[in-house]
Design a protein around this nucleic acid. Structure first.
Length: 215
DNA sequence: ACTACGATTAAA
DNA sequence: TTAATCGTAGTC
């Protein structure tokens, strides 16, 4: 077993990476890495599924029609920050703010492929099991927006966090080209959004086993 | 203050 | 298919 195999050589994404609309940012975020640095511990996951929320004209977006509240405020702020909100009173969802100040677009991170710190992710998701993870438990670690936040211990404490910072940040792999097929389809859980529910603004890496819902 | 509902998940 | 569970937002 060669140690370097499969270990990405990570470089933090700069601010300008986020300065584009949410659909374009969604596509660019696929294959990138989310890192949660917790003192001596580190969690890493590869982004395999995302959704674009296109702001005031998007009936599925929290910022639809210019809605601006305490919750949605960070979406109106600088790009490259985290928008974390509570859903169904018990789960968190992580978004990446896109575009630029004043444009309330964001990308929902829907699924990750676990890369590093699976033991901690398992503890965060299932508690102290002491057992080897089953294949199903492994897949279920991070294959959904609420699940990945639980696994990565991402809570509202991280709402507004600068993703070019040092606690929670995004990276690309220095040595690896983005080389995968992308599936483009409709977003999940937005039946209320009228015509917007048919917009193909969900993107995922084809055949990746950690994608939440396949077409 | 009161009410309705959700960018989900796990269990039945 | 359905219940869980409560923050958020809109209304009174």
């Amino acid at each position: 077993m060669i140690d370097s195999v499969g270990k990405p050589d990570l470089i933090k994404l700069e601010r300008s990476f986020y300065s584009k609309n949410a659909v374009r940012l969604s596509i660019d975020l696929l294959g990138k890495y989310l890192v949660h640095s917790m003192g001596d511990k580190e969690l890493i996951g590869k982004i395999v599924e995302v959704e674009a929320y296109m702001g005031i004209s998007d009936k599925a977006a929290h910022s639809y029609n210019g809605r601006r509240t305490e919750r949605t405020e960070v979406m109106y702020g600088e790009e490259g920050h985290a928008y974390v909100y509570v859903i169904y009173g018990m789960y968190h969802c992580l978004n990446v703010v896109a575009a630029r100040k004043g444009i309330a677009q964001a990308v929902l991170i829907r699924a990750l492929e676990p890369i590093k710190g699976m033991d901690i992710m398992a503890f965060n998701r299932y508690g102290d099991t002491k057992k080897e993870l089953t294949k199903k438990q492994m897949i279920n670690l991070t294959n959904g927006p609420g699940k990945l936040c639980k696994a990565f211990n991402i809570t509202k404490e991280y709402n507004g966090e600068d993703l070019t910072g040092s606690r929670l940040f995004l990276c690309r792999d220095k040595n690896q080209e983005d080389k995968f097929d992308i599936v483009e389809t409709t977003r999940v859980g937005i039946d209320y959004a009228e015509e917007a529910k048919y917009f193909p603004w969900r993107f995922y890496i084809k055949d990746n086993p950690y994608v939440s819902v396949r077409v």
